[in-house]
Amino acid sequence: MISELLFFMEVLVAGLLSGTMYSLVALGFVLIYKASSTFNFAQGAMVFFAVLSFVGLMEFGIPFSVAFVLTIFLMIAVGLATERLVLRPLMNQSEDTLLMATIGLGFVLEGLAQAVWGVEVRRLDLGIKDSPIPWIADNLQLFISALDVTAGLVATTMIIGLTLLFKYTKIGLGLRSVADDAGAASSIGIPLKHIMLLVWSAAGVVALVAGMMWGARAGVQFALIDLALKALPVLIIGGFSSIPGAIIGGLLIGAVEKILEVYIGPYFGGGIEGWAPYVLAIFFLLYRPEGLFGEKIIRRV
């Protein structure tokens, strides 16, 4: 009985921790959704592009910290190019058009990354072991990976940081204004292109961090792009425009999918965590379309 409970705890903890990894990816989506009400299909490709470039630079013998800073600059350059070449020409187009544009952007980044750095799977060593923390394993009989804990801390820090940025800074106020009504924001002198550049750069940096965490665990490789698909149910549940929603959604998806997989999966022949989150997401779409923390759709009757 006790071991059953312990096992459940372990499943839960593992789920919550892998949930924070989803949150990291979802965060990038939220940033862009907040500013342009568009689901950025290129986010997965941005994760791939960012971390592949980072590892690629390190292969040239550039030290970790320098490569990190260089990649951040690279992602800002990507943001700049996106604003100039994609967003500005499409200004005032429908959100569908923007969505299509992000799909195209995703392909471009994906192709570019593979063309420049090649298709080999690379190892990324952050110096944090993806193995159980010995003290916890010995004393609590819980196997918790040091990398997971680090990812959790990084995700939490970023979420707190971004929440503070949005809530209490002038830039944040500008961002939220643009998200609500870009036209009105521009009428009072908030420069849209700066905001867009900022958001895309921030999303790029978030993509880099997410990519580093995932890359350290699973290798830097093409499959990282598919993570974007995992972020979708997280966003539906957490709310597309909510930063805290991204973490709660991630935790929820992580925990629920693990518990379902372990306890119900065997009856379905396993592999249900591939689709279970989407089923959960559909329930949310039916009963709470704005997600847990999404901004209520304000409609005055």
Binding site: G15, S18, L224, D226, E257, V262
Partner: peptide, 11 residues
């Protein structure tokens, strides 16, 4: 079973 792409295999 593992659902592809399988970057997550905790459960």
């Amino acid at each position: 079973a593992i659902a592809p792409p399988g970057l997550e295999q905790q459960s």
